[in-house]
Amino acid sequence: MSGIQLLLLTGVAFIGLFFFTRLKKRTLDILLLALMVGCAGMFVIWPDITNKIATRLGVGRGADLVFYVSILLFWFVILKLYARIRRLEQLLTQIVREDALNKAATPVTKQEAP
């Protein structure tokens, strides 16, 4: 086992453990997590698998395939995060606006337009 494999495996193990301790026994989530951790571990231990898949898909190296797929994934995650930020912002706006409208200071004035 090479140094990088050790490093990546430890990383995967820690991330897996981190999420595992946070999941509250929701079977589907745990299964999904196990699947992802399993895949990650498998690809790290036997990198040749990714190479085989990559050549099938017309990509030269397994590492390149992983790179392309992660770019796509990151785009997806960023968009999801943006959507969530916008929802939060709308909620904040609503609360702040309600507060502003409730506290509107009202000087009594009646003036005639010019």
């Binding site: 702040v96 606006r97 507060d99 502003a100 506290k103 000087p107």
Partner: peptide, 11 residues
């Protein structure tokens, strides 16, 4: 003679 509404945070 103006009415003032205040947002508590900058939006």
């Amino acid at each position: 003679p103006v009415y003032c509404l205040r947002h508590r945070v900058n939006l």
